[in-house]
Structures are given as C-alpha cells and as structure tokens.
Simulated scan of single mutants.
Amino acid sequence: MGDLGRFPAVRSKVPEVTALFWLTKILTTGMGETTSDFVVTTIEPVVGVAIAFILLAGALVLQFRTQRYVPWVYWLTVVLVSVFGTMAADVVHVQFEVPYEVSTAGFALALALVFLVWHRTERTLSIHSINTARREGFYWATVLTTFALGTAAGDWVAHVLGLGYLGSGMLFLGLICIPALAYRVFHANAIAAFWTTYILTRPLGASFADWVGVGPERGGIGVGTGPVSLLLTAAIIACVAVLTRRHARADRTSLAL
C-alpha cells in the first residue's frame, strides 16, 4: 500500500470486501450463466453475443466516467461482464469446438499474463489501489478473464470430469473455503487469497444456477434458465440497494469527521 503516495488522493473505485460483496458476486455469476444460456437459446447466438458486448461496452464507459465508486454502476458492469464472459467461453467451445480442458488452460494462461503485466506496470495487484484509469483498466481486464476462466473450468468439471452441476457446485464450495481459511488462520497473502476466491466464485455460482435451471435430462431440477435469471436479478438488486445505503452512510460519516 506504500505505493499509493505516487498517485492523487482518490478513493478506490471498487467496493469494500465484505460478506455482502461476496454474496452479490456469487449471485452475479449465477445470473450471468443462466442469462447467457437463456439468450443464446432464445435468439441467434451471434446476435446475443453482439448485444451483450454493446451493453458491456456501454457499462464500462459509464464506470470509467464515474469519479468514485457508485454501487449500481459497478455491479451493473459486473453483471454484464458475467453475461459476456460466459458467452465468450461458450463460443470458444461450441463455435470453435475447443475442448473444455484446452479453453480452461488458455484462459488461465491469459489471466496469468494479465496479472504479470499489471504487477510489472503498477507494482501491486491490490484492489484497494484502483485509483487511476490504468489500474482500473487492468482490474476490469482481470475480472473479465476470471469470468471466462471460471466458466470454462466449471464446464470442464461438470461435463468432462462427470461431476454434474450439483457435484461441481459442492466441489467449488469446498475449494472456495481454502483461501478464506488460509487467510484467516495461516495469514496467507491477502491479495492472493482475494483473487483465488474471486476466480472460484464463478464456477461456484454458475454450477448451482445451472443445477436449478436446466432440465432433469441434463442433471438439473428444471426450473428454467429464464425464471432463475429473474430470481437472481431480483436478489442482486436487493443486495445492491443495501450496499448503496451502506455506502451512502459511510460517505456521510467520513464527511462528518
């Protein structure tokens, strides 16, 4: 954190990491998965991907134009990253017939490259120092890549390894506890623990969302991807409303000091 002195005293443009942050993040991963499936099975996939890209580009422009962290803008961008990242990973497998294990390795390599360039350029990967446009660019490139990686990894575990959606969800639920315990109990590096957890939220949320949404013939309950998307969207809106109130209260408190 000592490197922050080289930059203007601007607040980080990403939210504080709390339990509600992680809950909202997991909800967005599930919503992105089912919404992507619903869109590409309802309209022409190419059209769906194009629409998702345009909406994401618009959200990113809005996010970069804000001078501080605005909860609804930030989480709208995360949701659209989730939808587009899911579509990107699915296109690699379905349209280009790239095996899940290959796409998983490819996205993992891409993520490692983003981290490497980010760290060599800024000397930190901390989300608490997202206070310049360049760092924000690295941050959102990382977020997009983690969604694509998580999608590919989740599908690989569910389909290639044969665990199914519920089995995959339980596996990733166990895996996501490891960095949390490593940080809390063994005082592991906070940045490494954060990004490991962040990556794992994607296949965790998507696996359970798929399990609820898809039909029994695919190993799910069969509620439907459309209804699941609407339910998760409502839950995300509720979480963002709470986050907005908390952020506004924190702003008032800081101004009063």
Rank of each mutant, 00 (worst) to 15 (best):
I176L: 15
T24Q: 09
L4N: 11
F38A: 10
L56D: 02
G164V: 00
A112R: 14
C239F: 10
V160H: 02
A88P: 00
G226I: 09
P8F: 10
G58I: 03
E136S: 13
S207L: 08
A234Q: 06
M87G: 01
I237V: 15
W140G: 06
T145F: 11
G48P: 09
H128Y: 12
P216L: 06
V79F: 09
T196R: 15
D3K: 15
I176F: 07
L257Y: 07
R6S: 01
V102T: 06
T104E: 05
L257G: 11
A152S: 08
W195V: 02
L173R: 13
M170Q: 07
P71V: 07
V14T: 15
T29M: 02
G58V: 03
V117H: 04
A88R: 02
L243H: 05
A158I: 00
V117L: 12
S254H: 04
V143Y: 15
P45V: 01
P99E: 05
F21L: 07
L200H: 03
G219I: 01
L111Q: 13
G137R: 06
S126H: 04
V17R: 04
G174K: 09
A152D: 02
R252P: 11
A234H: 05
Y139K: 11
V92I: 14
T34N: 04
A133R: 15
L204V: 07
R11E: 14
V78T: 08
A59L: 02
I130K: 13
Y69A: 13
G213S: 14
E217M: 08
S168K: 06
S126E: 09
F84M: 06
V46F: 10
A248E: 15
D90Y: 06
A188S: 08
D3S: 14
G220C: 10
V14L: 08
I236N: 05
L27S: 07
P99Q: 03
V185W: 04
T24E: 06
L144D: 12
S207R: 12
R246D: 07
S82H: 00
W118H: 05
I176Q: 15
